[in-house]
């Protein structure tokens, strides 16, 4: 295909690119510059980076974020994919079940955090249910061993329906003829999934994988509201630490340094994901 007409290109790409540069990249650059000035310093240095990397709390928050991401992303995508496959069929009230699963995404995140905080209270309804079933009550958000799991539960309750919706949209686009063809070949259910659904869903899955990874790196409202990173730093995600440093403690420069570190880490992870999910025809357009 020929190169695009520059005017047409400008019309199509210009407005969005301008918005992204002015409202996202420029302020990010400002943060990058901030991160090079130690408090009250007028010369650039790497002092802020030295400080955060020598701070055990920040080091721990990197570890917590890594563990959290390794669990929450596969978990959410697997459940979302299973639900999408389940709810892609015709069936009684299918729209209702989809709506109900997506609905938590519409509740203000602060309220979701509050209701789960109450639900998971040691004297709350979830423990009441466990005891009714003859099980031991659990400590949930008040235990260093269970708090991160509780946070994962909450963000998954919010997120699974959301990611499921993208996967449902992707499933809609798979041509029916492919299913018929493979069925004629005598493929079983697993083979159908493996050789038709999964490859056809690749672009959608790339989107969901990348977007979900990013979203989970950036989420912190439930942590901020429910645990402030505790107990013993067990839920102190990097983003929560950035918020605490920057907005609560007023240490802008180390918050900016931590932001630069976070964006760099996420960028590397995302680029690896692109590489893994890439197919040759993507660039042949």
């Amino acid at each position: 295909m020929r190169l695009a007409n520059p005017m047409t290109l400008l019309v199509f790409l210009g407005p969005t690119l301008l918005l992204l540069i002015v409202l996202r990249l420029w302020p990010a650059m400002a943060a990058l510059v901030d991160s090079l000035y130690a408090p009250r310093a007028d010369q650039i240095s790497l002092d802020n980076y030295v400080f955060i990397f020598s701070d055990p709390v920040f080091q721990d928050s990197l570890v917590v974020s890594a563990i959290y991401s390794l669990i929450v992303n596969p978990l959410q995508i697997a459940i979302a994919l299973m639900l999408a496959l389940l709810l892609n069929a015709k069936g009684p009230l299918i729209g209702l079940w989809r709506t109900l699963i997506l609905l938590p995404a519409a509740v203000p995140l602060s309220v979701s955090a509050v209701i789960w905080g109450i639900g998971l209270r040691p004297d709350g309804p979830i423990n009441a249910l466990l005891m009714t079933l003859g099980l031991e009550p659990q400590r949930f958000l008040t235990s260093p061993d269970q708090a991160l799991g509780s946070i994962i539960l909450i963000v998954s309750w919010v997120g699974i329906g959301y990611w499921m919706t993208f996967l449902l949209a992707g499933l809609q686009e798979i041509p029916k003829s492919l299913y018929e063809a493979i069925r004629i070949d005598g493929a079983n259910r697993w083979q159908t999934f493996r050789y038709v659904t999964l490859p056809q869903l690749r672009r959608t899955l790339t989107f969901v994988l990348v977007a979900n990874t990013v979203a989970n790196f950036l989420v912190f409202a439930p942590v901020q509201i429910l645990t402030q990173g505790g107990p013993r730093g067990s839920t102190n995600l990097v983003m929560n630490e950035i918020f605490t440093l920057g907005f609560v403690q007023g240490d802008r420069s180390s918050a900016a340094a931590a932001t630069v570190v976070l964006v760099t880490v996420v960028l590397v992870v995302v680029l690896i994901q692109f590489r893994l999910m890439q197919a040759p025809e993507d660039n042949a357009a």
Partner: peptide, 29 residues
Amino acid sequence: VMRFRGREAVFFVVVVSFLIPFDAIALPL
């Protein structure tokens, strides 16, 4: 769909733009 020089770079800008934690840049913005 369109072919133009620097398409990869523009796509990179798009990707980076949604990696940036919006709350963390709220201040300069």
